[in-house]
Amino acid sequence: MADGTPPPDPSGPDAVGPASAVRPFLVTAGRVAAGDDGRSMPVETQVVATAEGLDALDLLAFERHDIVAVCRLPQSLAEIAARLRLHLNVVRVLAEDLRDAGQLTVHVPDSDLVHDASVLRRVIEGLRAVPDSRGVPSDTD
């Protein structure tokens, strides 16, 4: 036990899995997401593969391939990053590339709309309908 056991991760128990051996800046060819005051896309921004993107899937490699493939169904930037174990900012940069190439559509949420009373009311109503518990698993489908 004494040797070979890595010390506990000080950042807590939520290990993300083994870090990629490839540095993020290599994946993005040195580019970074806007960040700082350049207003990077919100983490909940929705991304969807286009038909062109799915058609071109075989021509895409590595992260680009994986991102288009995982976006067959709409995904947030955060979900893409988590599912593919990529840094969020890498996903931001590559998603913009793929959008520019017509392989993804990227839907930055309209902040005014999100904060609109009618939207908030719909979220409230939807949440109110959530039952107290998930019910008995597998029995009550």
């Binding site: 807590g12 919100p42 983490v43 909940e44 921004t45 929705q46 991304v47 969807v48 593969a49 286009t50 038909a51 993107g53 799915l54 067959r72 169904l73 709409p74 947030s76 559509t105 839907h107 949420p109 309209d110 709309l113 999100v114 939207v119 908030l120 979220v123």
Partner: peptide, 22 residues
Amino acid sequence: PAARSAAVRPPLPVKMVISGGF
């Protein structure tokens, strides 16, 4: 296959933040 339709409209994402100590 969803992407075959002209344009898949993703949902509007509404974000809340859960915060607090470790």
